[in-house]
Simulated scan of single mutants.
Amino acid sequence: MGVLYLDQADTELRYRQGAIELRRDGTLLRTLPGALITRVVLRADTRLSSHTLAALADDGIGVVVLGGRNGQRVAHVLGKPHNDARIRIAQLLNHQDPARAGHWCSVLVGAKVRRQWRLLSHAIQHRPDLHLPLTQACQTLQSIVNSVQACREPGTLRGLEGAAAAAYFRAYAQLFAASLHFGGRQRRPPPDPVNATLSLGYTLLYSAAVQACWVAGLDPMVGFLHQPTHGRASMASDLMEPWRPTVDAWVWDQFRQRYLRPDHFGRDGAGACLMGKAARAHFYAAFTPVQKMCSRAMQRHARQLARALLRDAPQWPDAAPTDEP
């Protein structure tokens, strides 16, 4: 199963008899079996009919529309919903139970921080010149992991996650060349090439998490680690948290290997950093295996969580890696 990215203007998308057709000026460019596609991402102006949207949704193929020059506006067209409303009812009841919500928060934060630790530990091998700051960050993350394991209070766990993010990004930022001007995580708008690339990766991960929730019967808007708030799919945000460091590692590798370079990026009138078309073409092709792996894992965790909620027992899916730091 894969993701189809459309980033050329004036492309027409049709869906007939289980096959996706791509056309331009009436000429057939490509045909793809719908059975191989889980999601279509539209980055450029694309023509498709309401019949095509309905047919894609009916076959479980989601459509993600990225709008704005930075792709910061996102719209989702999801497939058929899950038919068991009991899952959402159980999800809401567990959201209101601090003990069970706290356990889920602990699993999520622990998994994320362990992966952050693993990325920085791996980076020491490639950047021995940064041995001291990377080692210090790893020690901080190890201490936070220990605290997370002993905590089940959601508010405290959110604070630990924030402390881990601060220590992690201070060290992570030092892995990049000074010419990239990356000083830490910033968004809306991203001020530098690394932040622009992270934002696009996180956006695609988020869209996959929304679809994973939908297919599993979870309410994407009601999370445990992320409190419900206007305009945010909090459960989708929960599901993607352990996989952010996977995106981070991929982004670092792209700049370290110079597959992405400063000259691949430009700026708009407001000073936001924009990824050029050549960079986007590379991004979509190279990111596909990472997104595929993360999407499958999030779908699996969403199904496990849905089953646990229906059992009404504290048997929560473990999103954490099996190896400990």
Score class of each variant (00 low, 15 high):
Leu310His: 07
Ser121Trp: 11
Val247Phe: 12
His51Gln: 14
Gly34Cys: 06
Asp10Ala: 12
Leu130Ala: 05
Met221Lys: 14
Ile20Leu: 07
Pro220Met: 03
Asp192Gly: 10
Phe265Thr: 03
Leu36Val: 08
Pro321Arg: 09
Asp7Val: 04
Leu32Tyr: 02
Arg73Tyr: 15
Pro317Ser: 08
Trp250Gly: 03
Ala44Asp: 11
Trp252Gln: 04
Cys273Ile: 06
Met221Asp: 09
Gln186Lys: 15
Arg88Glu: 11
Pro245Tyr: 00
Val65Thr: 10
Arg188Pro: 10
Arg280His: 05
Leu28Thr: 10
Glu21Val: 02
Thr38Tyr: 08
Val251Asp: 05
Ala177Asn: 15
Ala19Arg: 13
Gln116Trp: 07
Ala165Trp: 15
Val145Leu: 06
Ala233Asp: 12
Gly217Pro: 02
Cys294Trp: 02
Leu204Met: 07
Gly201Ile: 03
Arg30Leu: 06
Gln227Asn: 12
Arg127His: 13
Gln174Thr: 11
Arg127Ile: 10
Ala212Tyr: 03
Cys105Gly: 11
Gly183Lys: 07
Gly223Pro: 08
Gln291Glu: 11
Pro262Ile: 05
Thr52Asn: 08
Thr203Trp: 03
Leu200Gln: 09
Met293Trp: 15
Thr197Phe: 03
Ala173Val: 11
His226Ser: 14
Asp45Val: 02
Val251Leu: 00
Glu153Phe: 03
Thr52Glu: 02
Pro314Val: 01
Leu93Pro: 14
Pro191Asn: 00
Val290Ser: 05
Tyr206Asn: 04
Ser199Val: 09
Leu93Glu: 15
Thr203Tyr: 01
Ala54Tyr: 15
Ala278Gln: 15
Gly159Asn: 01
Leu93Met: 14
Pro321Ile: 10
Ala167Met: 09
Gln125Asn: 11
Arg100Ser: 00
